[in-house]
Nucleic acid binder design. Structure first.
Lengths: 213, 213
DNA sequence: CGGGTTCAGTGATAAAGTCACACAGGCAAA
DNA sequence: TTTGCCTGTGTGACTTTATCACTGAACCCG
């Protein structure tokens, strides 16, 4: 956990002020950091854990846009803070997270006085932009069965072979309907690639034999 | 054309340096500012005109991600400049554009010395993020016929009732296949809402009678 | 005017989204 | 323990969108 933090780059005086000015907090999984329409109350800087950001369309359907991890600044919040408009998406803690809320004034000072901090912000923005561009491409052009398999595969790569997740939650991850996920999973089960139970997907056979990278 | 530029916010000395350091250029419609894979050679600051940014998926299909207009900094270029990676998308001039290329050094100086410039950058980033989030929602959850009608409507709102555009280009705007656009347009023509000709869509009847805002 | 190139139209079929409803598992109150 | 109830899952029927494989029309240019 001795991760290199963006705050380590600050010089001593600035660092001292910063550490005084912000309040690190822990958030349990499931906690909602902010939801759509709400107004911004400071800039979350994620120190550890994982937070997913998802939005709900006028249709009532939701989709996960991206995830924030250690050293990410919530770029969405910057926008809301600047423009004064409400959030367009919501943020939900996934893995127990630690985050510091940076007040507006401190943010402005850091931007003014630390080139490294600025760089960190730009990097966060860059990642978000990249994530979203990739997502657009995925949603617009990729087949659902492949996306589902890839998603499961990616999760499994983290060592987990048994995922505790409902079809509905998977549907939100992929931005599709629950029925579609159900059918695709059923098909995978028929092929012996997964085993299904209520709220559980166990990966058995290797999916995506075509990973010939 | 006496638009308020982000450069106007700089103090005299900085402004002088800036105007010396950058080279404003004109670009004709169709000109490619950068394409996928290419490396960044400076930060375009759009002064006038309109530039569309689109990406091509592995599938070979393309989709327009967003447009840059006056006072927009190309946020994509910032990312490429910072990370040294190539562009993931391409930028094509739509309406004759004027843009200044800001060299890396000058950008760093401006970021360091002008809070207003920083604010401008953040705003550009915020807009892009917003555009992309909206696009994801559109692509994931909206029906193609509605999206097409809305797109045409939005264009027509600019005073133009005759659009010189091919079905293929429309398909890229919406991130779908040419055939789909052809069929939907044909249906609109049957209903008397548009008149079609090679490379041309004329809006006749009012589309989207359901604009009961 | 012929011949090539770019655009547009269309049928057949597969994939994905929508709607409606049946049923199963787990939990808690009766 | 049984009875509901709520949440999660399975599925049929149908619509919309994507894909593939063509055909033919409009335009450009030698």
């Amino acid at each position: 956990m001795a991760r290199h933090s963006i705050l380590d780059t600050l010089n001593d005086s600035l660092r001292k002020d910063t550490l005084e000015g912000l309040q690190a907090m822990r958030f349990p999984p499931g906690q909602v950091l902010f939801s759509a329409g709400e107004h911004c109350r400071g800039l979350p800087l994620v120190l550890a854990g994982s937070i997913k950001v998802q939005m709900t369309g006028v249709s009532g359907h939701s989709i996960v846009l991206y995830r924030m991890g250690a050293d990410d600044i919530c770029t969405l919040s910057i926008g809301c803070l600047m423009t004064g408009r409400g959030y367009r998406a919501e943020a939900i803690v996934e893995d127990e997270a630690e985050a510091a809320i940076i007040p507006r004034g401190l943010f402005d000072r850091l931007m003014d006085q630390s080139a490294e901090f600025r760089l960190g912000i730009m990097e966060s923005y860059g990642r978000r932009l990249d994530d979203l561009m990739l997502l657009v491409e995925e949603v617009a052009f990729h087949r659902m069965d492949e996306r589902l398999e890839e998603w499961l595969q990616a999760r499994a790569a983290g060592g987990q072979n048994v995922l505790n997740i409902t079809h509905q939650e998977l549907a939100v991850e992929l931005g599709t309907a629950r029925e579609v996920v159900s059918r695709l999973l059923k098909e995978l089960e028929r092929r012996g690639q997964v085993r299904l139970a209520r709220g559980r997907v166990e990966l058995t056979g290797l999916l995506k034999t075509a990973s010939l990278a």
